[in-house]
Design a protein around this nucleic acid. Structure first.
Lengths: 143, 143
DNA sequence: TCAATAAAATACTTTTTTGTCTTTTATTAT
DNA sequence: ATAATAAAAGACAAAAAAGTATTTTATTGA
């Protein structure tokens, strides 16, 4: 469904959202341990998300990654688009470049509904939901 | 969504299903041209599907790939499982190994419905549907 | 029988994805 | 000022996916 990069990215963003409850910035090491991902790899992913403006960061001691009120409005769909692009939202299920309503592939219409449901779900799920969630849920971002 | 290998595989199977209307075996070259895929690559994929019993083939002159009545009962889901495995049907959206009903990831329940819809759709779509379809539809398997 | 045909098997190359490591830059607290 | 900290940047390595080419085996029709 999503690339590994994207899976790690979503998990990290949810983790950071949860941790941002108490306005605390979290470091890469902490995040990697929290979501069970390779440390250097997630670092690269988070830097990319920061560059794209979905995530905030601060260098130096007491630094780390964090989300402010505005960034917490980010949806899972935003993260997926930033990392995997929008193939999953608009691409043809059979990989055809010019598949469309007027020139549909054999399973275009069946796929459409599923893509729309997924798109809606990912768009409606925002990081601030996880911000509210209790600390015990964090464990479920690992393994 | 699916790997490139899987996309080509599905397209080829649909193409063969359509061509099997008149009990004609189709060769790799014909299939590659028909679905606009790399020739050697689709050959390898079809051999794998044949080995797994989803597709029938015959060597030598007048040989090629074909589907009999039984093989035409194959669903898109069967093809996906044979090529990409069942990650898309049962795997966690965030890539967690032990995500489950009792230990769900933060978006487990939202994902569940989508996975189920997709699974149902792919399972209910069988190759013999395409077998019935008109020849003009074939163009929509390319590009 | 034998030349032609077409899939099967297999080896190989390229590209993309995933993952690791080192150096640089910004920031803080002493 | 400066030592410590943590992200940013960028180079590098390994693994997986995608794609290509060659050789072998089975089958047919002349």
């Amino acid at each position: 469904m999503f690339s590994k990069t994207c899976e790690y990215g979503i998990r990290a963003m949810i983790y950071i959202a949860q941790q941002s409850k108490n306005n605390v910035k979290v470091g890469v090491k902490d995040i990697a341990a929290g979501i069970n991902s390779p440390e250097y790899f997630i670092a690269k992913i988070l830097q990319e998300l920061t560059r794209k403006g979905l995530l905030l960061s601060f260098k130096g001691p007491t630094g780390g990654f964090y989300l402010d009120e505005k960034a917490l409005q980010c949806s899972i769909a935003d993260i997926v688009k930033a990392i995997d692009g929008d193939k999953i939202f608009s691409g043809c299920g059979l990989g055809l470049d010019y598949c469309s309503e007027t020139k549909p592939c054999p399973i275009h219409h069946e796929f459409k509904k599923i893509r729309e449901d997924m798109s809606r779900m990912l768009t409606n799920t925002k990081l601030d939901e996880f911000h509210e969630k209790l600390a015990k849920d964090i464990g479920f971002l690992k393994r």
